Amino acid sequence: KNSLRSEKMMVPSAGLLLCVAACCFLPLLTVSAGCRSKWKQLRGDITEYKLITVLKLPKITDCLMKSSAAEAHAASFDAESGDCALMQCDRGGRDACRKCRHEKDASLPMLWIKDPPKTCWKTFQHRVDGSVSFNRNWSEYVSGFGQGESLNYWMGLEQLHQLTATGVWRVRWEFSDWNDNWYWAENAPFSVGPATDKYRCSMGPLDAKRSSVGQLTTAAFSPNGKTFTTDGLCAEERSAGWWFGYCAFMNPNGIYRVPPEAYSTSFALSYILNGGVLSGSYSLKTFECLIYNE
Rank of each mutant, 00 (worst) to 15 (best):
F267S: 10
K114S: 08
G204V: 11
E7D: 12
T217N: 14
V128D: 04
T166W: 04
N181C: 07
N2K: 10
W242R: 08
N181S: 14
G148Q: 11
C19K: 11
P205S: 02
A165D: 13
A21R: 02
T229Y: 06
Q147F: 05
K66R: 05
G167S: 10
S212I: 11
S3W: 04
C289A: 15
P12W: 05
W178L: 08
N251C: 13
L290M: 15
K114P: 02
G276V: 09
S281V: 10
K285Q: 08
D62A: 10
Y141V: 09
V31C: 09
A185T: 14
P109R: 00
F124I: 06
M9A: 14
S37V: 03
D129N: 13
G245N: 04
L278T: 06
P194L: 10
S211F: 04
K118A: 15
W39N: 09
S131K: 07
R210M: 13
C289R: 12
D95Y: 06
R98F: 09
E236P: 03
L111N: 00
F175S: 11
D197I: 12
T227N: 12
T61V: 11
S222W: 01
Q147D: 14
W178D: 07
V20Y: 03
G232N: 11
T230K: 02
F244G: 05
L284R: 05
A248P: 01
A74C: 12
L290V: 10
N251H: 10
L57P: 03
G148P: 07
G92V: 14
Q125H: 12
R257Y: 03
G92K: 12
S270H: 14
Y292F: 08
F221K: 04
G280Q: 06
S3Q: 09
E140Y: 01
L42A: 10
S143M: 06
D83H: 04
V11K: 11
E261D: 15
K59V: 10
C247W: 00
L26T: 03
K56M: 00
T61G: 07
R210S: 15
C89W: 07
P117W: 07
S32Q: 13
P117E: 07
K1C: 14
G204R: 05
F124R: 04
A22F: 02
K104E: 13
G93R: 08
V171T: 15
R98P: 01
D45Y: 03
Y199R: 14
S32N: 10
S37T: 06
L157H: 02
E174V: 13
L57W: 00
T119D: 13
M65S: 11
A235S: 15
T61R: 05
K56N: 04
V213L: 09
L111T: 01
G146N: 08
Q41W: 06
L28A: 07
V20Q: 06
G254V: 10
T166D: 12
T166Y: 08
N224C: 13
P189G: 15
W154L: 06
S139W: 00
R98C: 08
R101I: 11
W242V: 14
G276N: 06
V128Y: 02
C24R: 05
E103V: 07
L26E: 08
G275V: 04
E288D: 06
S283A: 09
K38N: 05
C35S: 07
G44M: 05
Y256F: 14
E288L: 05
M110P: 02
Y49Q: 11
S283N: 03
